[in-house]
């Protein structure tokens, strides 16, 4: 009881370093006392005067948490304007992360800022001595994330760019579809359209597949109903955000996105 309420507590987090990762994407290294997240879990990040938003950490080492944030709207733009020495406020970690104890080798597939939880999972899998490959997709080579970091951790790296400026010309899914059968596990995070195709492929081939998905997260603790996946009634913030492919099958995932207060928007 006490333990849970403690995770609701806002923790101040001081920015120690800001790194530009790619066009429109920055990492913030934060000193904070929150407990170590499991890769795939998320934290709620509050910038006073702005909103509180969910972000999946991209690294954690001894009280230093790394958040990798893409500019999308007001709050993420404000986060990009912050400098070392300034503060953010964080609560969490919340939700169900990736299960890294599954047997065998792992194929990690990332699109866009979905690379954040994936690179963190890669760190932890390598520390466990697991065999890991990393597929990263982006529009062009200046938007690719964590390529050298993945190599540093001795993962096999596959690159896909839409414009062919580096690696395979095409999408991460196209690269993934040829590789999935060789792996025991797939971990994926990125645009929903891409994740949906990966889910279908893994279900077809019977490969264990864990996907981190997004819905509109407001409370983060399973009580407001804003992040629910119909028709199974799964709460992305507390039953997820990581789900096995079987759990996502036959839900709205990949088809439409329910925004509060119940507005359905198709996934383009």
């Amino acid at each position: 009881m006490k333990m849970f309420l403690e995770t609701l507590k806002m923790c101040k987090a001081e920015i120690v370093k800001v790194v530009k990762e790619a066009e429109g994407i920055k990492s913030l290294l934060l000193e904070t006392s929150i407990e170590k997240p499991i890769p795939g879990q998320f934290v709620m990040v509050w910038v006073p005067g702005f909103e509180e938003i969910p972000i999946s950490p991209s690294m954690y080492e001894r009280n230093v948490l790394r958040l990798t944030v893409a500019t999308v709207g007001e709050t993420t733009r404000k986060i990009h304007s912050l400098k070392p020495g300034e503060r953010l406020f964080i609560r969490g970690p919340y939700g169900r992360g990736f299960n890294l104890d599954e047997k065998g080798n792992f194929l990690l597939i990332a699109g866009g800022y979905g690379a954040a939880p994936i690179i963190y999972a890669l760190h932890e899998l390598r520390k466990k001595g697991k065999n890991v490959a990393y597929i990263i997709g982006a529009r062009s080579k200046d938007k690719l994330l964590f390529v050298s970091e993945a190599r540093k951790f001795n993962a096999e790296v596959y690159i896909a760019t839409d414009d062919g400026s580096l690696g395979f010309k095409g999408s991460a899914v196209e690269v993934a579809e040829k590789l999935i059968a060789k792996y025991d596990n797939v971990l994926a995070c990125g645009p929903e359209r891409m994740l949906y195709k990966i889910m279908l492929k893994c279900l077809e081939l019977g490969v264990k597949c864990q996907i981190s998905i997004e819905r509109y997260i407001k409370c983060g603790i399973g009580i407001c109903g804003s992040c629910v996946l119909d028709p199974k009634g799964l709460r992305v913030c507390s039953d997820g955000p990581v789900f096995y492919a079987e759990e996502l099958a036959n839900t709205e995932f990949g088809k439409y996105y329910t925004y509060p207060p119940g507005i359905k928007k198709p996934i383009e």
Partner: peptide, 14 residues
């Protein structure tokens, strides 16, 4: 219909 308030919508107390 009501969208509800902007976040933060929950806060901790002891």
């Amino acid at each position: 219909p009501r969208v509800g308030y902007n976040t933060p919508i929950v806060a901790y107390t002891k």
